[in-house]
């Protein structure tokens, strides 16, 4: 099996949303970060991958199983948590742990106890009294202790305080050492994705904007600051996603950078003062703005 996840030309129409011809692959052992604003289609994509939604067209394969038909087999080895997932508030974490343990033979009790300590959770406390952060960590514990082959997380770090976020991220980094485990997680928080993922997938308004390995992807983007009159220059560079002007000062963002671009700008009479790599957050914003203009 090459790909843990394989979506081929998947589309799904709702009254107010259209997931448009999405094709996506996640190779085994890879971590993919799914980026996009609210309503971009992240949750729909993840739910397709859990067999909870049937696509209108196209095919969804997870761990070699066709969804939603074979979802029972696929879900044996998928650990899924979303930020709108709640546990039974009248019961405590221990009860949930026993429930999961009774379902999954792969449950690692020692690891579960380790996670209890690391996440600083009280297994005997009822969920009613759990904070958001504790809830997220509890869900993660229930998933991670059963050692699934594929982990799918919808906004795992959203709303966490910095300490809880750090605990969650470091434990995620820990499980990613297993080369056979694949992870797909969505987040608003580009820092998390930059920190954890091997590849990045951008969704916007139900469309796939980009899907590439992280280093290559980040390397493609540059912020170029230059002075001069752009309007009269007529740049002729088609990888520019955004230009901001402030008097004669220009900020140009390109998404297919190569070393010839500064020379070409100089040749057009512009004086290039800096060429900077961009953080994922900046790329995210630029990408969304470009998508909005398109």
């Amino acid at each position: 099996m090459q790909n843990a996840i394989e979506l081929k030309s998947v589309s799904k129409r709702y009254s107010d949303f259209y997931l448009d011809n999405l094709s996506l692959q996640l190779p085994v052992g890879q971590v993919m970060g799914l980026v996009g604003v609210n309503g971009a289609g992240k949750s729909t994509t993840l739910r397709l991958l859990m067999g909870l939604i049937q696509p209108d067209t196209g095919s969804v394969d997870v761990l070699g199983y066709r969804l939603p038909e074979q979802q029972v087999l696929a879900k044996q080895n998928i650990g899924f948590a979303s930020d709108d997932m709640r546990l039974y508030k009248t019961e405590n974490l221990r009860w949930h742990m026993q429930l999961i343990q009774s379902i999954f033979p792969s449950w690692d009790a020692t690891y579960a106890e380790h996670l209890l300590k690391v996440f600083d959770l009280n297994a005997e406390q009822k969920f009613k009294g759990f904070s958001h952060g504790q809830r997220v960590k509890a869900c993660l514990l229930l998933i991670l202790a059963r050692k699934p082959k594929l982990v799918i997380l919808d906004e795992p770090t959203t709303g966490l305080d910095p300490v809880a976020r750090e605990e969650v991220l470091s434990e995620l980094a820990e499980i990613l050492r297993d080369e056979n485990r694949s992870v797909l997680f969505s987040s608003h928080n580009t820092q998390d994705i930059e920190q954890l993922s091997d590849s990045i997938t951008f969704l916007h308004k139900g469309k796939l904007l980009d899907s590439q390995d992280k280093e290559t992807y980040l390397d493609r983007w540059r912020r170029i600051v230059c002075t001069g009159d752009i309007n009269s220059a007529g740049l002729g560079i088609d990888c520019i996603t955004d230009i901001k002007r402030n008097g004669s000062l220009n900020e140009i963002i390109v998404n297919q950078y190569d070393d010839s671009i500064p020379e070409r700008l100089s040749a057009l009479g512009l004086s290039v003062s800096s060429v900077d790599r961009m953080s994922l957050e900046k790329i995210f914003v630029a990408n969304v703005r470009a998508g909005a203009k398109a």
Partner: peptide, 17 residues
């Protein structure tokens, strides 16, 4: 309503189950 359904549906079951 209390959003425990996603938790249950993340287990290896189908809607018919």
């Amino acid at each position: 309503k209390e959003q425990t359904l996603p938790f249950i549906m993340s287990l290896p079951i189908s809607p018919t189950d």
